[in-house]
Design a protein around this nucleic acid. Structure first.
Length: 592
RNA sequence: GGUCCGGUAGUUCAAUUUGGUUAGAGCGCCAGCCUGUCACGCUGGAAGUUGCGAGUUCGAGUCUCGUCCGGACCGCCA
């Protein structure tokens, strides 16, 4: 070892000891005579002093720069009276340098290694290895590690075993776009990278493993968002002989332990549950942020014959009028802000929203001249509006109106800082629909995935397919979908029936999922499971709002790696070996 | 596929509103001074294809169009 201690551990009890340290220069202060260096490693900072009497050392020390890498020997001593630094864990001591070796020089940096400066995402990603030196990023990596360790220990204690499933697998229809990997040995054939190990974990249940988990990379070739990366990590688990309650118990135990050990926050269990329909009705989304109120209120009845033609027409054609109350926002809500608000909602797909201000002088709204103030007063009463509040009404078809108001609810709560960030708001969302209708494909598609068990009672009672519910569930924390799963189909007949409803032909079902259907003929335990978005959970635990900040080497919005310039074109020879011809001739590498 | 925001020194920003002299500042960098600093201090200095390309204009960092890059979002994400 090039050191006897790390940079975070020396204390007054070490005074008098001779030690070796190694690390980066976090900062240097050359006073002309004395030179102070803050030596940094993963564990902390230690101040070392080079005295002018040590002539050769002093000359070397005077040439050092930030982020140079040093190894040194010295003596631990107390700092002089009044010179301790209470902000440093090692602030009561310093190391007087007796030998100094420059292990590596650093060029001037593209940015400083400190938390208090905002650096462009572009620079951070290009020099990710420097960004990761910053305490904030180091902390995020440590939380990642903790989460993975806690999960493994907890699940192992609960009799789960970790099994690795293939990364090269079969491309299947439904779901996200696959990342494909060409096969050299099978010309024209491709593997897919897993969107999730879904079918494998079900087969592990058929195999009798009973309780499986895996911390596993998944890949989806879809567009990115601040909470979505093309490759991401799941805590994937599956259990045999279980129903919803059993999965919930395991998950609640894990989440409880995670928040206790990482955040020192006690989470009461069981977690609350809300149905999918109620979530949409009250919060305008299937992943409601319950850290604040501002719920969406149904107002349609009030506007039945309100005198405002637009609203009456919308109601007559099956639309709804709903509203939210934004506390205290009326005062400075100018014409300009109303315009900005309407611009904002336009990109969500609606022409605009209606704004009502509850001012000390009375109710103020552009629609008052049609409806009169009496109707608006009833609106205010229903929304429990007080003087000074802003009321926002959305009108249109129910799902879109819900979505718009749901977005506005979060937007205003964030801007007005109405969100309690001291503790997480956790809820189960249950009773998902089994199917969605796809306008694009003109058919039903699985709302969760095609292995999810439908509500058997509803099915037997002949409930229309569009209204059929499934045994799927999501875990939602602070408005993020953190985990999702379901009780699975475990009978071949039911699985075939669902494929049929999804208009997957028997031939296609056999070709794509034949292995699963075959497995279902050999004794399948009832089973179910769930998968956590590992990165999203780390994001919540660290208070980050961008998933990139909890991933060591992430991709940009354009799914590109700025640090190593991936992806790239490959040589003609590589393509030929893989039996691949590209449609466009390869550009000269990267676009500039 | 679409909408919006941004791109000026190594870096974070200003100058863009209303086109007009030599594009400024903090940090960093370089040189000098400094023996108790810890965001050390003081003095001086270097540092720019204003992302790129066209256009308008007597004149463009500033206006227009295209394009590239980054970000947020819609679509997409079983």
């Amino acid at each position: 070892m090039l050191r006897t201690e790390n940079c975070g551990q020396l204390r007054v009890t070490d005074i008098g000891r001779s030690v070796q340290l190694a690390g980066w220069i976090n900062r240097s202060r050359d006073l002309g005579g004395l030179i102070f260096l803050n030596l940094r490693d993963r564990y902390g900072l230690t101040q070392v002093v080079v005295e002018p009497e040590t002539t050769e050392l002093h000359e070397l020390a005077a040439t050092l720069h930030m982020e140079d890498v040093l190894q040194l020997e010295g003596e631990v001593r107390a700092r002089p009276e009044g010179q301790a630094n209470p902000a440093m864990a090692t602030g009561e001591i310093e190391v007087r340098v007796t030998a100094l070796k420059l292990l590596n020089r650093a060029k001037p940096l593209p940015f400083l290694i400190r938390d208090d400066e905002e650096i462009s995402e572009e620079a951070r990603l290009k020099y990710r290895y420097l960004d990761l030196r910053r305490p904030r990023m180091l902390h995020n990596m440590q939380v990642r590690h903790q989460l993975s360790l806690i999960s493994r220990n907890y699940l192992s204690e609960q009799d789960f075993i970790e099994v690795e499933t293939p990364v090269l697998m079969k491309s299947t229809p439904e779901g996200a776009r696959d990342y494909l990997v060409p096969s050299r040995i099978h010309p024209g054939c491709f593997f897919a990278l897993p969107q999730s190990p879904q079918t494998y974990k079900q087969l592990l249940m058929v195999a009798g493993l009973d309780r499986y988990f895996q911390i596993v990379k998944c890949f989806r070739d879809e567009d990115l968002r601040s909470d979505r990366q093309p490759e991401f990590t799941q805590i994937d688990l599956e259990m045999s002989f279980v129903e919803e309650e059993d999965v919930f118990n395991i998950v609640e135990g894990l989440v409880k332990r995670v928040y206790r050990e990482i955040r020192q926050i006690e989470i009461p269990t069981p977690f609350p549950r809300i149905t999918w329909e109620e979530a949409l009705q009250r919060f305008g989304t299937d992943k409601p942020d319950l850290r604040f109120g501002m719920e969406i209120v149904e107002l349609s009845e009030l506007f039945q014959d309100c005198g405002f033609t637009l609203f009456e027409q919308i109601l007559a054609t099956g639309g709804v009028i709903r509203g939210i109350r934004v506390p205290g926002a009326a005062a400075d809500f100018s014409r300009k802000k109303i315009d900005a608000l309407n611009d904002y909602v336009k990109h969500l797909g609606v022409p605009g929203v209606t704004v009502i201000k509850l001012t000390p002088e009375g109710i103020n709204s552009s629609i008052a001249k049609f409806t009169g103030t009496e109707t608006l007063q009833q609106v205010a009463d229903l929304l429990q509006g007080e003087v000074g509040d802003l009321l926002i009404l959305g009108a249109g078809e129910p799902p879109l109106t819900a979505k718009v108001l749901g977005h506005l609810r979060v937007k205003f709560a964030t801007e007005l800082e109405l969100i309690d960030r001291s503790r997480p708001a956790i809820t189960w969302v249950i009773n998902f629909p089994m199917f969605d209708y796809s306008e694009e494909d003109k058919r039903l598609v699985a709302a969760h995935h095609p292995f999810t068990q439908p509500d058997k009672n509803e099915l037997e009672q002949g409930v229309p397919l569009e209204q059929l519910h499934s045994r799927a569930y999501d875990l939602v924390i602070d408005g993020y979908e953190v985990a999702g799963g379901s009780i699975r189909i475990s009978e071949r007949e039911m699985q075939e029936k669902v494929f049929e409803l999804l208009q997957i032909s028997p031939q296609e079902a056999e070709a794509k999922f034949g292995f699963l259907l075959r497995a279902f003929e050999y004794g399948v335990p009832p089973h179910g499971g769930i998968a956590f978005g590992f990165d999203r959970l780390v994001m919540l635990l660290t208070g980050e709002t961008n998933i990139k900040h909890v991933i060591a080497f992430p991709k940009t919005n354009a799914a590109y790696s700025l640090m190593d310039d991936a992806p790239t074109t490959v040589s003609q020879q590589q393509l030929e070996e893989l039996h691949i011809r590209t449609i466009e001739p390869p550009e000269s590498g990267k676009k500039e």
